[in-house]
Every structure is written in C-alpha cells, then in structure tokens.
Amino acid sequence: MKNRVITIHTNDTPVSLKTKKLLAKKLEGSGFIVSESLDTDSELIVCIGGDGAFLEGIHKFQFPEIPFIGINTGHLGFFQEISPNQLADFIFHYKTGKYHLQTFSTVKATVFTENNQSFEHVGLNEIVIRGELSRSVHLNISIGGSFIERFSGDGILVSTPAGSTAYNYSLGGCIVDPRLKLMQVTPIAPMNTTAYRSFTSSILLPSDLSLGIIPDYETRRGIKITTDHLEYTYNNIDNINIEFSDKVVNLLRFENYDFWTKVKSKFL
C-alpha cells in the first residue's frame, strides 16, 4: 500500500508551531505520514500561518502540481481555508473526498540584461517593477508588441486574479474573480503632469497578451523586481517581458467555499 505523505510548512510563531504539533499528531493517528520536506510521495502541502507563510511555502517548494491547503494562524488569511479549531473536520473531509480543487494562474517576468543573460521570476500574487532606493522610474510599456505609454512614477504592479485582493487592491486596483484568466496592470503613484503623462488606472489584459517593459536609459540601472515577497535587483536591464506562466497553484477547497463570500468576510 502506498504511503500517504502530507507535507507541513509553517512559520515560527508560537501559535503556528503549536498548531503544527497538534496537526501532525492527528494526521499520524489517521494513518498519514508527516514530513517537513516535499517527498516524492507527498500528496498534499499544508501551510500554517497567514498569507505570507502560504506564499513562502509555494516558492519554497517551487510551485509543485500537488495541492495546498492553508491553516490560518495569521491576520487576513485570504488563501487559508481552515482555522486551528477545525483540524479534525479537515482530516475527515480530506479522507472522505469532500473537497474540490481551485486552480490559480501565475505570472512570469523574464528579465533580459545588456550582457545577453536572462532570468525568470514567477509570482502567484503579483510582480512589481520599481526603482531601487525608492527612485522614480521611467518605463516604456508595450502590450502585445505595440507601444502604449512611457510610464513615469514609483513603478507598476502586474497582478493575477489571485493577487487582485492583495497589494493590487491597496493601490486602487479592482478585485477579479479567480475564474477569469487575465492580468491586471496597476500603476504605483503615477505622474500625470504637463511633463509626464501616464495611465492612472488599472489596465486589464487577456491571458494571451504579454507586457513589454523597456526602462529609459537613466532608470535602466537600479531596477527592483518583486515577486510576491521575494526581491531581486538588477543594474543592467535591457528589457522585461511579463506574461502568464505555465505553472499553476492548486488549492484544496471544501464544499461550502465561495470566493465572493470570502471577499465579503475579509473586506466588509
């Protein structure tokens, strides 16, 4: 009989560590093997903490195909499905198959440097392009190969539907139902004067279009790229291409889950 392995990822807060210990005991009592690493036999990843711990787990395990479920011991917990007092219910519903998978798209930035190197970064929530040391940036932006604008401001954020309720929402972007496959481009403190003209609202793009970014010469050096919670700084960027990635994230959802009910409970 194949081992049923469940991987647990957690942050280091006292309540998370306590929840992890209790969950591991309950899982082992139900016939599962508990691991802290992603084994070849792992069938589920449990992330304990808030949304930050959840995103950390996705990047730590490099966007695996096996599903995730979150236990919220943090604050907002938008991705998290269950609370620490629902561990027994979670195990029962999981063993009896009373759940479905919700699939989230991811976004990818490919950075091309002046010395002909390229680097890829994938995000579940968003990818942010901004200047190093909080400097303003000037970015020549194209959509599907057609030039659109010369953006000037603090930067731009490209979010997935999953990330529309995160930083994007704080910037005034719109909430997008995750069943829609689109990218949202939201400006960060755009300049709109007689000298600089930039879009001041979000732009929604279909999944088959890519976003091209060429920094102006004076801002080409010292560009910071953030994918979810991870930051990378480049000093010799030639151009950046942002598009949907072929990687997806599968979340375990129980029968009573509804996206808009979750939105209402977290924001209203």
Score class of each variant (00 low, 15 high):
242 I>F: 13
228 D>Y: 13
98 K>A: 12
229 H>P: 00
92 F>W: 01
4 R>C: 06
67 P>I: 12
7 T>D: 06
24 A>K: 08
133 L>D: 09
155 G>E: 09
93 H>I: 08
125 N>M: 13
109 A>Y: 02
115 N>V: 15
141 I>F: 06
256 N>Y: 02
28 E>N: 12
64 P>L: 08
87 L>S: 00
215 P>A: 14
74 G>H: 07
210 S>T: 10
57 G>N: 05
23 L>S: 01
175 I>P: 10
228 D>E: 10
162 A>R: 05
127 I>N: 01
194 T>L: 11
78 F>P: 06
152 S>R: 04
32 F>Q: 03
230 L>N: 09
119 F>K: 09
188 I>T: 03
213 I>Y: 08
92 F>T: 11
201 S>W: 01
252 L>T: 10
147 F>H: 12
218 E>H: 14
140 N>P: 02
75 H>T: 13
219 T>H: 13
256 N>E: 14
67 P>D: 06
10 T>K: 09
216 D>Q: 15
230 L>D: 10
61 F>M: 10
130 R>I: 08
124 L>V: 13
189 A>I: 06
138 H>P: 00
197 R>K: 12
152 S>A: 15
198 S>K: 10
250 N>M: 07
6 I>W: 05
80 Q>N: 14
176 V>S: 01
153 G>S: 01
13 T>I: 07
148 I>P: 00
247 K>G: 02
9 H>E: 01
73 T>K: 05
94 Y>V: 07
212 G>S: 12
116 N>C: 13
171 L>H: 11
114 E>H: 08
121 H>Y: 13
250 N>P: 07
137 V>K: 09
31 G>A: 09
34 V>K: 02
201 S>D: 07
197 R>T: 11
199 F>K: 07
80 Q>A: 14
230 L>W: 03
17 L>D: 02
62 Q>A: 14
101 L>S: 03
235 N>Y: 15
231 E>Y: 06
183 M>G: 06
96 T>I: 12
202 S>I: 08
5 V>D: 08
35 S>L: 02
129 I>G: 03
53 A>C: 14
